[in-house]
């Protein structure tokens, strides 16, 4: 069972995660307008920038984050921004969209100039997240847990980060047991996705460079 404090923590993080997302007007642009390759690139770049801004706003709401050393806060956000972006996109792709929307989005990404060797693992990741049928609590908590990874480069006080991450892991573990009683491995599967995310993050920098060149 969840304690009252744990339930309050979940509600708080889910609220923050729902509140801080890419504005709908911007998301709509992805579906409505036709762009050439250059405009496509600029739109996706603009969305990535906005994503980072809303990610920071969400992160400010994670209990205890503001007590961390300021430079450690930046190191955590820098280290996790790409992973959090993939998680958010995965959440979008695993939701049931109105007819045709998923195809339009996928097509736009495929025509954005990114190389196939990167696109394939990205959509594989989206699919693997989709298969887990995660609830919004799991998405919000997993994002917070990703951000509070103590082993990011340049983090000085790793223990302080661990102290914030641990209660979130415990809450997520409990939620997995409650919401997926027939899949005792669900929590382990979620953590496995974090490993997959690290691999995507690792390839992201070189992908971005080749994208910029093309």
């Amino acid at each position: 069972e969840l304690s009252q404090d744990q339930q309050a923590l979940i509600n708080y993080i889910v609220d923050a995660h729902n509140k801080h997302r890419i504005p709908q007007e911007m998301a709509k642009k992805l579906l409505q307008e036709q762009f050439n390759a250059k405009e496509n690139f600029l739109l996706l770049t603009e969305m990535a920038t906005t994503h980072v801004q809303v990610l920071v706003e969400f992160t400010k709401n994670i209990p205890g984050f503001s007590t961390l050393d300021h430079e450690d806060q930046i190191a955590l956000l820098k280290g996790s921004a790409v992973e959090a972006m993939f998680l958010r996109s995965a959440q979008v792709f695993s939701k049931k969209q109105p007819n045709g929307h998923t195809e339009v989005l996928e097509d736009r990404i495929r025509r954005s100039g990114m190389s196939e060797e990167f696109i394939t693992p990205m959509f594989n990741f989206y699919r693997s997240i989709g298969e887990l049928q995660m609830m919004q609590e799991e998405h919000a908590l997993l994002t917070a847990i990703t951000i509070l990874s103590p082993d990011r480069p340049y983090v000085k006080d790793q223990q302080a980060v661990e102290r914030l991450q641990e209660p979130l892991l415990e809450v997520l573990r409990k939620i997995c047991k409650i919401q997926h009683p027939h899949d005792p491995q669900h929590f382990a599967r979620l953590l496995g996705r974090l490993t997959e995310l690290r691999t995507l993050n690792h390839h992201h920098a070189e992908m971005l460079e080749s994208w910029r060149m093309s």
């Binding site: 600029l42 770049t45 603009e46 990535a48 920038t49 980072v52 801004q53 920071v56 706003e57 400010k60 300021h70 806060q73 930046i74 956000l77 820098k78 921004a81």
Partner: peptide, 21 residues
């Protein structure tokens, strides 16, 4: 434009609450 800023700049500005810049 914001898209010309580096990741760290965007994070620093957003942390300081200057999202509109």
């Amino acid at each position: 434009p914001a898209s010309n800023l580096g990741l760290e700049d965007i994070i620093r500005k957003a942390l300081m609450g200057n999202m509109e810049e």
